[in-house]
Design a protein around this nucleic acid. Structure first.
Length: 270
DNA sequence: CTCTTAACCTGGACGC
DNA sequence: TGCGTCCAGGTTAAGA
């Protein structure tokens, strides 16, 4: 479910309530997430102050003195600020109870999300090999072009590869390729420098636009404060199969690339 | 190395 | 109502 804009919106929603706060208790109700939750994790976090709440790709990073708790929302996860007395719902898998009376509550029906511990987050195996942040200056058309050299994979799969660049998931990959006028099936290694410049700019623009509107709510995404994202109404192609292209009016196509639904305009994208 | 595929899991929508 | 099928915002591990 959540891509970079949704994770960033979640982060911004919980920062005012949780950054700088003491974690009074950690309750794990369901440890069977994407990776089993370490039984020793509550003991490590309890009593610690959350120094910062950061983000790396789609991971939220709760940094404390002894280490960092990594939270990934997977496909269907959400992390929300609730009052301590808020009734539990099905699939509320863990809570961080804070000293200010608020609780960070993780909800995830499909359990593809995760809660992990790292003494040094940047060296954790799941973070160590990640590509650059798309909104950083080092992520550019030149970087994409150099990284794509010799690769034959479809460009859509290429930009969704977190070792190439983090945070670009299935919605924003289709959206960025539409904005850049690039066909999603084109081989990554056979795209010009000029077109990669357009693509890098399109990725930055679509992610920034989505963050401004609080992300995209299709089914079950809600921010840290429980608000839906309003970028859905700005989508040009995603889940618009057979609808008119916003540029040329021809019907948007839906195909499957790398097992994922992909939307594009056959006339505007080459 | 690069690339493809299966797998992890629940629930909602839809057809019969 | 129920049952089977398909689909869903992510990511890794295994295999070719």
């Amino acid at each position: 479910m959540p891509e970079l804009p949704e994770v960033e919106t979640t982060r911004r929603g919980i920062v005012p309530f949780a950054e700088g706060e003491i974690i009074e208790s950690v309750v794990i109700r369901e440890p069977r997430l994407r990776w089993p939750v370490d039984a020793g994790l509550p003991g490590k976090l309890t009593g610690q102050r959350i120094r910062t709440i950061g983000r790396r790709g789609k991971y939220l990073l709760f940094e404390t003195a002894p280490g960092t708790a990594l939270v990934h929302l997977g496909m269907s996860g959400s992390l929300r600020v609730v009052d301590a007395a808020t009734a539990l719902k099905k699939h509320d898998h863990f809570d961080f109870t804070l000293a200010n009376g608020k609780t960070l509550r993780f909800h995830d029906p499909r359990r593809f999300g995760s809660l992990l511990w790292a003494e040094d987050a940047s060296r954790h195996p799941l973070l160590r090999d990640l590509g650059p942040e798309p909104l950083d200056d080092e992520f550019s058309g030149a970087y994409l072009r150099a990284t794509a050299r010799g690769r034959r994979v479809a460009v859509k799969s290429f930009v969704m590869n977190s070792q190439v660049v983090v945070g670009v998931g299935n919605i924003y990959a289709s959206e960025a390729l539409f904005r850049a006028g690039i066909h999603p099936r084109r081989s990554a290694g056979r795209i010009s420098a000029a077109r990669y410049q357009r693509l890098a700019a399109a990725i930055k623009a679509v992610l920034n636009d989505a963050i401004k509107l609080g992300g995209t709510t299709l089914r079950d995404y809600y921010s840290g404060e429980g608000a839906p994202g309003y970028f859905r109404q700005e989508l040009d192609v995603y889940e618009r199969a057979s609808g008119p292209c916003h540029r040329c009016g021809r019907p948007i196509k839906r195909v499957v690339i790398g097992q994922r639904a992909t939307y594009y305009c056959g006339h505007c994208q080459h």
